[in-house]
Computed example of a mutant assay.
Amino acid sequence: MPTILGQNQYGKAENRVVRITRDGTTHHIKDLNVSVALSGDMDEVHYSGSNANVLPTDTTKNTVYAFAKEHGIESAEQFGIHLARHFVTSQEPIHRARIRIEEYSWERIEAAGEGRHSFVREGRETRLAQITFDGERWEVVSGLKDLTVLNSTASEFWGYVKDRYTTLKEAYDRILATSVSGRWRFNWTDDAQEMPDWETSYEETRKHMLQAFAETYSLSLQQTMYQMGTRIIDHRGEIDEVRFSLPNSHHFLVDMEPFGLKNDNEVYFAADRPYGLIEATVLRDGCEARIPVDLTNL
């Protein structure tokens, strides 16, 4: 039975690009997920496999990153216009370009000290609580998950163990990002004790967590995590134990040399997996750990 080719398109989907604009010590961030779909004179690639009219999808990916450097990202709409115009006007076989962009918003974290380079993802995290009572004693564990935070500088990673399989380059100015999953256990266990103000405690614990993340010059995610837990213990007398699970949300500098461009810590590839997973418990001195290591079972 004879067939004909109908509507078709091709391209590179979900190109994660993070653009940092540095205005002195104040940084601005644009975090996009860009999908490119191209269509036009593409019959022969389907009928005979001829790639004569095909711009590789890898090239469309490279174009997204190069344009983030060359044009910046004023807005998702303007960035998409630049890309679509480029693909259609620079390649005769391409008659139509569709650019779909998701933008992830970040709210600046205002913190003490120099520099305005710390952000928290807009859209509140999920708040958690577990209450256990045996008829006499209470155990209350509060927490949160999916609190996404990022420092666009003030983070390094170097001096680590190296062996024959090590390829990671040392970094002296990197993006530090994670999605915080944390739990904290209260020392309120008896009705005879004064009950904490749960709402105030949650907001203040969250505030100290974010401020510690923003104000720590980080040589490792472990160091930052410990400072987050320490600050909570130091400032919230009602809490004895904090447990964190922090995935290291890697941001890798895009190699711009093939395009004749210099990437001065501006354009990154945001990798969602695999990721380093950093976990630890911070305790008030003299207290014992009770929060399970596997937070998913809490």
Rank of each mutant, 00 (worst) to 15 (best):
P258E: 02
Q130H: 13
G11L: 12
T224M: 13
I291F: 07
T205H: 07
Y10I: 11
F252Y: 14
Y104H: 10
L176V: 03
D272S: 15
L253S: 06
R183G: 05
G286N: 09
D58W: 12
Q9G: 12
R127F: 11
L283F: 05
G159Y: 04
R290K: 14
T178N: 06
D272F: 09
G276M: 11
W158P: 00
T167K: 06
A270I: 08
G286I: 03
N8Y: 13
Q222L: 14
A212W: 00
G6P: 07
Y226F: 12
P56F: 00
R174L: 12
I278A: 08
F67R: 00
V45C: 12
D197Q: 08
N297C: 05
E114T: 13
V161Y: 14
E194Q: 14
E110H: 14
R137T: 13
S50Y: 04
T224W: 03
S218M: 02
L246E: 05
R174H: 04
F79K: 06
P2L: 09
N297P: 00
A52E: 14
L253K: 04
A214C: 04
I291N: 01
L32F: 13
A271I: 07
R16P: 10
H95M: 09
K207S: 13
I291L: 01
I29L: 15
T178M: 05
H82C: 07
L144W: 08
T59W: 02
Q78V: 03
F186K: 00
W158D: 11
T57W: 10
S245N: 12
E103W: 10
E241N: 05
R284I: 01
W138R: 00
V293M: 07
Q7W: 09
W198L: 13
V18D: 10
D285M: 01
I81P: 00
A280H: 11
M228P: 02
T126I: 10
R183W: 07
D294Y: 00
Q9S: 15
F252I: 08
K69H: 15
S218V: 01
Q130K: 11
S181V: 14
N15E: 14
K12E: 04
A68Q: 02
K207G: 02
V293G: 13
I291W: 01
R127L: 12
I94A: 06
L55P: 01
S155A: 15
I131M: 06
A192C: 10
V36E: 00
G11K: 02
I94E: 07
E70D: 12
M42A: 03
A214N: 00
D240A: 05
L210T: 04
L150Y: 09
Q78G: 03
